[in-house]
Nucleic acid binder design. Structure first.
Lengths: 138, 138
DNA sequence: TTATCATATGAACAGTAATTCATATGATTG
DNA sequence: CAATCATATGAATTACTGTTCATATGATAA
């Protein structure tokens, strides 16, 4: 038993104390490529800003021109324009020109689905914390 | 016609040139509260980092101890520990102790659903760009 | 063409967030 | 108890990101 663990230590690479090789092999095989994981993180990053979140929710209701969004959020036209560019580069929104004004709209349904999913998580989490509060009350 | 637009300009608040009041009223009514939108952005922010994304995908396969994750990602134990704390504070992961080692696991199914949704978007987008490439080829 | 409106953009600045380093905690073993 | 292992944490550093400011572009109307 003691002798066994001594042998184990010799086999393991230095600096690593206990054995995760089995799990590591399994997980390594299932993990997506680095590139895909980065792309995925980059996608979620877009939803990880309050301003962009507000813009997306607004566009969920109706297409809007830049200054309308700026007015709605009480922010600079420039700030909104910068964020719209980021959203457009990621193909989350599109735009069309009508005279001087440019209208932005959601590019596809995925935005709606992703937002809804996040919503669900928040709501369930909120309900859980309410339940915990309830348990404390008893 | 000209007189009409002059009257319009008088009615509109200064600095705002064309009329979005109708759309603004509609959208303002449907927009969630600032607090909810911030919470939602904060949630997505968690998925918006490559390291955390990798950790979550790893835990999707199996619960893991901190040093196994560190080894898997080729990163410092400290870095992983910091990120795990963030994920735990947000209730996305939980942990259990077994002797000296602490195992982390996904807290609920929402993580899986949210990640899958993001995945779908990426894949569809990728397919679209392939189709566009195809069109160019013809 | 000139003036104006709507939007875009680059540079600068400020706030945020991830990693590293050193160290602390907490559990186990001898 | 001392030593070691696994993990956590605080401070410092570095990199990134969002907003602002000034200005540019592009379209329309006079």
């Amino acid at each position: 038993m003691m002798a066994g663990s001594e042998i184990l230590e010799e086999i393991l690479p230095e600096g690593m104390a206990h054995d995760h090789s089995t799990i590591l092999r399994k997980v390594r095989g299932e993990l997506p490529t680095d590139e895909l994981l980065c792309d995925l993180a980059d996608l979620f990053k877009l939803f990880g800003d309050t301003t962009r979140m507000k813009i997306l929710f607004a566009l969920l209701e109706s297409e809007m021109c830049v200054c309308a969004i700026a007015d709605l959020l009480g922010m600079t036209q420039s700030a909104i324009s910068h964020q719209l560019r980021i959203l457009k580069d990621a193909n989350l929104v599109g735009n069309r020109r009508e005279g001087k004004t440019i209208y932005y709209f959601l590019a596809d349904d995925h935005v709606h689905t992703i937002l809804a999913q996040g919503f669900d998580h928040l709501i369930e989490e909120h309900q859980e914390s309410e339940e915990q509060q309830h348990e404390k009350d008893l």
